[in-house]
């Protein structure tokens, strides 16, 4: 008995030892700033009058803030439209690559993945140039063939243009996750299916898709977080479309503007926490829906 327990102890302390670097970084770089932000969100600092404790006033204000609501609704729309398109594309590419029927599969795989290796700032600057209404290649092409110039950066198109940039950036990333999951499916399942007379489509539908469910759920969770925290792309396109992307275009951009333009870091902290809460709720709803569908 004693030998066993001491081995357990030793194992436990070794585990703790291995986890320590992570835990230290986790506490210093994640929990501590989070706690500090929570602390800040309970105060109010004014240019005239200084700092005072206001309890949950900032949260009360944020809940009723039309600019925050508008930002959250906009990223929610973005999520509902962009994420299905992106994941469907990622799924199609992953299935095509996995089917083994594609020529130059390695080149294609790399080609789809490369945009993810491009920093999102660079990607957005590049797309900002492509979208340009005067000198962008699309505009020049349209003019050359006497078609109306597409207004990628106009109010009506902007969300779609942003969705396109994000899709371009992240299809490859999601594809790799799905593709890796596909590679773990044992080959004998396919053989058995083939023996039973299943074709490629039937195999994809009845074996691959069900096996992909956990991986799909993972990519979906990442997408929830990514969509609701949309920041880099709108922030950068703001420079070339200042009349469309205002300082509260997305919820994250709003928090940023509150801090660095409005000098209201306290209120921004409250806004950030509420945004975090929204993300938790949406993630939970997504999980719940997915799990309910799993149980017949």
């Amino acid at each position: 008995m004693s030998t066993l327990s001491s081995t357990k102890d030793r194992r436990g302390s070794a585990g703790l030892l291995f986890a320590t670097p992570f835990l230290v970084l986790f506490v210093v770089l994640f929990l501590a700033p989070l706690a500090y932000a929570a602390y800040l969100s309970l105060f109010q600092t004014k240019l005239v009058g200084g700092t005072k404790f206001v309890g949950l006033d900032n949260y009360a204000r944020a809940v009723a803030d039309p600019l925050l609501l508008q930002g959250v609704l906009r990223v929610a729309t973005f999520f509902v439209v962009q994420v299905p398109v992106m994941l469907l594309l990622a799924l199609l590419f992953a299935l095509a690559l996995d089917s083994g029927l594609m020529r130059l599969a390695r080149v294609v795989r790399l080609g789809i993945f490369v945009p993810y290796a491009v920093p999102s700032v660079v990607a957005t600057l590049m797309w900002g140039y492509l979208y340009g209404p005067d000198y962008g290649p699309f505009a020049q092409l349209s003019r050359a063939v006497d078609l109306p110039v597409p207004r990628f950066l106009s109010e009506g198109w902007m969300l779609g243009s942003l969705a396109n940039v994000v899709t371009w950036e992240f299809v490859g990333y999601n594809m790799i996750i799905l593709y890796a999951a596909l590679r773990t499916i044992p080959g004998d399942l396919y053989e058995a299916a083939a023996m039973d007379g299943a074709g490629a489509w039937r195999i994809a539908w009845s074996i691959k898709l069900p096996a992909l469910r956990p991986a799909l759920l993972l990519t979906l969770m990442f997408s929830v977080i990514g969509s609701f925290q949309l920041f880099n792309e709108p922030k950068l396109l703001q420079a070339i479309a200042p009349d469309v992307i205002d300082s509260a275009y997305t919820a994250n951009l709003y928090a940023y503007s509150l801090t660095f333009i409005g000098q209201q870091p306290n209120y921004a902290a409250a806004v950030s926490f509420l945004l975090g809460l929204v993300i938790v709720i949406v993630s939970y709803v997504v999980l719940l829906t997915a799990n309910r569908r799993r149980t017949p």
């Binding site: 240019l47 009349d243 205002d246 333009i261 000098q263």
Partner: peptide
Amino acid sequence: PPFLDQVVTDWTETVGK
């Protein structure tokens, strides 16, 4: 004004727009 950044942003979103 003593809060120029805000004034500038608000201008862009109202008059500039």
